[in-house]
Design a protein around this nucleic acid. Sequence first.
RNA 1: GUGGGCGUAGCUCAGUUGGUUAGAGCGCCAGGUUGUGGCCCUGGAGGUCGCCGGUUCAAAUCCGGUCGCUCACCCCA
Length: 427
Amino acid sequence: MSKAAFQRLPGFRDFVPEDLALRSHIFDAWRRVSRRYGFREYDGPPLEPLELYVEKSGEEIVGQLYAFTDRGGREVALRPEMTPSLARILGERSRGLAKPIRWFSIPQLFRYERQQKGRLREHFQWNVDIVGEDDVAADAEVLAVAIDGLRALGLTAADVRARVSDRRLLSAVLGALGVPAEGLPATYAVVDKLEREPRERSLERLQNEAGLDAGRAREVLALFETPGLEGVRERFGERDEVGAELARLDTYQGHLEAMGLGDFMTFDLTIVRGLAYYTGIVFELFDRSGEFRAICGGGRYDRLLELVGGEPLPAVGFGMGDVVLGELLRARDLLPDAAPSVDRFIVPIGPEQRALALRIGHAERERGRSVLYALREQGVGKQFKAAASAGAREVVVLGPEEVARGVAVVRDMASGEEREVSLEELT
RNA sequence: GUGGGCGUAGCUCAGUUGGUUAGAGCGCCAGGUUGUGGCCCUGGAGGUCGCCGGUUCAAAUCCGGUCGCUCACCCCA
């Protein structure tokens, strides 16, 4: 079974037709929805300078890059995410583009890490970004695209939800609670894993790593015990800096509700996102059952373009991977039909009809029909079996008697009904 | 990087306390059926039992290592 010499690399996938059918199904939905929203597709190279990711994406990603030195002595990496490439591309040419820039891409991304459920060393990720617009409407638009991408695949508000937070709100509230600026990154890290760590451990880390005293640490944790923004609004809504953030999120929610997508989103301050470059609203999409990891994540990154040396432009976008999404579609019984099918299968009864079969087949193909026929002389029964397993909708039978009369028999494979069609019509 | 579970035909799996030619179903190929598919019947191909080593008269079976898959941790595009 295992010919050790030529095994697939761990964490990489083959896409036999049945598997490619799912991938194409997903890609088609992504492209359809992107275009519906007026986004244009772009791509970049899969290999980038290592430096593009160092300090732009944060340690987490850099530690698991597929990186090496090329023959020219350059430090390079297979792209682990698309956003830095987008920033690099726009850095060169954004000045000449009408704003806002609405671009999308479906890159194959790589990471060097042990694979597990929903996480391989390679995946495809739908990236959608709006660059050059800082209005919160752009944030709402981007989340709407992500949600519609899932809806286009048959998922509903009962299956998935977006959890939305805002780093500006979170830092304003933490500031109001007395968390010093230098303690924010460590506090974010604790908040990010609130769901996965016991309360005691979080309390400990807030004190040891973020430098909070026990009372403040407890207050911080209390903040996340009520879901949504109501607790924050009650306690800190009067403060100008917090009030302004809340007002913007209200507008955001209003936009999504106006689009009829309000059921898909909830505010959740525990959403932080690991990437270092996010600056504002951040969100993640999850399946409601909680059985899979995040399907999609994104947010606002207003400083990234200037960080890579481009025009300072605000930006907001998301990435949605094909692996977890595919698992979810499978679990919800939303897989596409991957069975083969062709329009017509042509069956010459004997060698005398072979040339005619080829002539009809080619004429039909010129008309855009998908056509198959046996590539060697076979009995009629054999040819019908081949037609059935190829998923032929109709079989065109060329027999000497009919051909002499200038007709062929066309059999509908589903109903079994047969009718005569003139050869003129077929050629 | 750490830990658990699992590797027998293309797929899903069976294989008694170690015992001689390793099985089934599905799929594939061929025939029954050189003017009609699905159903049925018959036959066939396909396996160094993941790999390497050890124990033994004898290993798919026991032991060690290794590779792979998988789940979790770490972390998270």
